[in-house]
Write a protein that binds this DNA or RNA. Sequence first.
DNA 1: TACATTCTTTGCCACGTTGCAAATCTGCTG
DNA 2: CAGCAGATTTGCAACGTGGCAAAGAATGTA
Lengths: 342, 342
Amino acid sequence: MSQVTVKDVARLAKVSPRTVSNVVNDYTHVSADVRRRVLAAIDELGYRPNLVARNLRTGRTGLLALIVPEIDVPYFSELARAVIDVASAHGYRVMIDQTGHDHERERQLLTGSDRTMLFDGILFSPLVTQDEIDGIDAATVLPMILLGEHTFTGRFDHIAIDNERAAHEATTHLVATGRRRIAAVGVQPRETYRTPRQRTAGYLRALADAGLQPDDDLVVPAAQYHRRNGYDAARRLLTLDTPPDAIFCYSDLLAMGAMRAVQDAGRRIPDDVAIVGIDDIEEGRYAIPSLSTVALDKDVIATKALEQLVRRIEEPDRPATQIVVPHTLIERDSTRVADRTG
Amino acid sequence: MSQVTVKDVARLAKVSPRTVSNVVNDYTHVSADVRRRVLAAIDELGYRPNLVARNLRTGRTGLLALIVPEIDVPYFSELARAVIDVASAHGYRVMIDQTGHDHERERQLLTGSDRTMLFDGILFSPLVTQDEIDGIDAATVLPMILLGEHTFTGRFDHIAIDNERAAHEATTHLVATGRRRIAAVGVQPRETYRTPRQRTAGYLRALADAGLQPDDDLVVPAAQYHRRNGYDAARRLLTLDTPPDAIFCYSDLLAMGAMRAVQDAGRRIPDDVAIVGIDDIEEGRYAIPSLSTVALDKDVIATKALEQLVRRIEEPDRPATQIVVPHTLIERDSTRVADRTG
DNA sequence: TACATTCTTTGCCACGTTGCAAATCTGCTG
DNA sequence: CAGCAGATTTGCAACGTGGCAAAGAATGTA
């Protein structure tokens, strides 16, 4: 574990430390003989460049931070997988931090007791409110891309789907399969979160387009987007005097919980209650019944996010851009039109 | 983004750079007045210590690497969640790398083109074979803890469950619920992987203990432990002349796929086929039917792994230890004894 | 007042690397 | 063979920090 340095290599290869560095960094003008000697010495000593030292010199660390609420939420782990892979292709490695729905911690990660030059950039998938994002001084923050949330204000690069339209499509799909009493699960108590608000807006617009009356009883909040919250929400919906014949969940994970609740209550999916989610996590493809959903292409999100982040790292002052990633409604068994009596 | 350094703070606070460092590091003998001035200057300039520089000086980075095959496999993402949280409590942050079932990349991550002093330690959940582990020169590697795989050879710290016993319990549980034709899914083509072999051993021993004849047709390989592999394996089992009445899957994810295949084939779980997995991922708790499994406590694994790693970082030469984490059989609906005819 | 003791503050240097620019060497031209 | 361009190699310094030990200030003691 004792560190082998350029000096050691230089000594063994009988060249200057600087030359070793040249070889390591593929500097053009190095004679074949010297290169061979240096490489041999590197090999013999097991020399590895000390990235910390290199980074101190160059100002780059080759590390990115990916900040998500919880890595064990499938949407985020699937996204992380894509991000790590794409980052690797760009020569970066990825540190992952979880905010765990802790507002204070999120703000801290963001504005920076931790902004310590250890990372070249940040991919941030925040829960913080728009106000808080707006409160960040862009100049004091590392190159940062916001993922999947919030409205674009021109201060930070931003990658997201069109939440309002996605929700509209999901709801309209339920309407198209003959549903009339459509619930929405996932409104957030904190009204300043953008994503749920946009999805609710899309849901309401779809109802209006279909000439359906919105019903406050059918709009159920979910403090977090976990299976448990979907479960609880669906149970509550099923106890209504006139329960819904379809549930639009703001995430697939909510939908997984809702599906379980519906079946625990002895109702059939999709016959009695149709369910649709958003995210397209693999779990939904194997669920019984398989879950209809609005698919977000995480590979595309990761790819665009990294392109954008790398560009910003190289060119910190370029104007912020917003990228809207397309989504796709995927119809599976949980909304499949079956023999319906009623 | 221009870096504010101790020098800037020192200039503003009218003290030496060294004094700023003393304040930042809570050195005991600093007068209240100076401390106040320095803190004020830090605040005014927005100074944050440059971790790269600090790390170069101290030799510590505060970063750990967690290396897993795929972060979007629920077992690993749930483990990662625990690791990140526990690491954070120890003052470390966690970089995640995926080997993606790529052997070459795994070896590389391990032995080190990447062992570049950027991390203080490694948590490694490997797929590599025992031979490869044995081939690593412990002296050249960062402090490392092996997670959940392989037999203990005294060269690396190692944390795992007793795979053989876990498999034995799972199989015995199936026997106890009246199953007689019990399949096993998850044998690995590469015979040198330890975990699947240990699980197969436990499975076979349980059959023997129950006086049941092993049947090669019932032992199905799975190249990877994904839902798809479980699905394919189960489908194959169901086409046998005498299909199994129970399937023991070597991971919950395999079991999720198997459950789907069984139901796609029109068989009932657990009535026609009982299914049990290993891991206890949350997905299984919400599955329909809920999945019986052998639970591994990921919080305990993460906690012990970090304790162990931190100890090793502080004391690199201490003898390697092996920690066996307890497991628990959890009976849920997928093996629940129901009316069985036949 | 002189001296010991303790508290504060500081200067110097190194961690391992690479940018810069200068030094040295090679081969070629005339 | 001088002179020159280009190739190759090198020394120096610096990135920002903290360890070390010493310098300087303050306090207590005789």
